[in-house]
Design a binder for these strands. Structure first.
Lengths: 245, 245
DNA sequence: GATCCACGTTGACACAGATCAAAGCCCCCA
DNA sequence: TGGGGGCTTTGATCTGTGTCAACGTGGATC
């Protein structure tokens, strides 16, 4: 029952939400045909972001949220002294920019880790449509809520897990999200550096690298640079539950 | 311009939002007189939670969000092995329960740390009213967004700060929130134990205790059990910016 | 006002992960 | 085809925080 990434049979120049192959993952979830047509009017602008470019920066005026059409992003917060906390990695179908609603300014940076394309969803208009389409309203609330729950998960990673647990949880999470997009659960390419993984997991890049090597020695995964193959998902999961008392 | 906690001049048995002394901090922010009257109809149930009791638990069906009228809460997530991650401490005027929207179940526990009272806001009705009252809709979005931004702040605490930085940030945050409620910025009682602070900050209780003692030695604060007096807020702030390169 | 008990403090020591350092690898580009 | 730079790996050592243990303290209860 998960969404498959299938090529559109008709070349859709105006690739609206109603035609989008991500509609089961993204904002259109649960909308009727009719409502989808309305959503098409809301999402009329698409934007290409090249690898390394910012979609927005902390301090930028907040005007829209963004649905990732293709590509891969990271969000991070920088401290004055240059230290970086990566707050998340986002892939196709996920929504970026909700951090800006509260203060009318973005509070973090969103950087493309590969050439990407996003759908621009002007926020004032989203609120207008939400008042008309209760399914859209409710789904948007769910998306925000899930972001809060995801953040709690990251707090658990950072607060109570040990280095190898964190990395195992990270790999399993990526695997699960790739699966939901119709990609292999066991084989994928990391889009981020060891340093970025470390920043996300509250570890130094050397620790991340060592944990990868350790997992490989133990036959849990195979790593070649950014290419990861999960050989023993159950073993990784066991790392998470088998924490010492 | 911050809200003062002033006693109501008229004893209001039916303490509606329109009369609430927290209306400048809570959900009613930015509503007109008229809209406030409507909100009064939405928020018709109040609930007392005694110290130590749960407002909700992870797994409970999600039906409502809660505005804290009086008191103090913690939210936490428990791992199978019994380890606890405190995800936040909430005080009067703050909203609890938004974690449950996404999955229709609560994903964390909310426990009263002192005798407390909350206003019950049935979520389906909140969405209905939001479709009518755009100021309410927008404000609710802001509240959720700020929760996300707050979570990012906790990630920074946990991901890149050292023990004393974390505790300094924690104290300054509490101080600022007490100030916004008309209490002293420099003197307050902690509602939570060292263990709970530690769980929130990703530290062990001994480390929290030692950091408190260290701050006291350095003249930054005075601690007697749960009573805290901030003697040098600037010094605490300096701890945050003066991180080593 | 004696007893109890949960919570807090402090010390000694251990260890996971950070830091420092040196190579190695891979991809990009001339 | 070769050089360079960014990223990764690995080793040696250091250190902040955890762990373990003992003791202190204050508020509740009878």
């Amino acid at each position: 029952m998960h969404a498959q990434v299938v090529p559109l049979s008709v070349p859709a120049l105006r690739e609206a939400c109603s035609q989008c192959n991500l509609r089961e993952l993204c904002l259109p979830v649960g909308l009727s045909e009719n409502e989808l047509d309305q959503l098409d009017q809301l999402v009329h602008l698409r934007k290409k972001i090249h690898r390394g470019q910012h979609l927005y920066r902390g301090g930028d005026a907040f005007e829209a949220i963004y649905a990732i059409k293709t590509g891969f992003f990271k969000t991070d917060v920088l401290l004055e002294d240059g230290r970086e906390q990566v707050t998340g990695f986002q892939m196709a179908g996920e929504i970026l920019g909700m951090d800006g609603i509260g203060s009318e300014k973005h509070t973090c940076n969103a950087v493309a880790l590969e050439d990407s394309e996003v759908c621009v969803i002007p926020f004032t208009e989203l609120e207008e449509y939400s008042r008309e389409i209760s399914a859209l309203q409710h789904h948007f609330h769910k998306v925000m809520s899930r972001e809060i729950v995801r953040d709690h998960g990251v707090m658990m990673l950072l607060g109570i897990m040990r280095a190898e647990e964190r990395l195992a949880a990270f790999l399993l999470n990526l695997s699960q999200r790739f699966t939901a997009r119709g990609y292999s659960p066991t084989e994928f390419n990391l889009r981020m550096t060891r340093n970025e993984i470390g920043s996300y997991l509250g570890l130094k890049l050397e620790t991340v690298s060592r944990a990868f090597s350790r997992f490989q020695e133990e036959g849990l995964i195979t790593v070649h640079q950014k290419h990861i193959q999960i050989r023993d998902a159950a073993g990784l999961k066991k790392l998470l539950s088998d924490r010492r008392v």
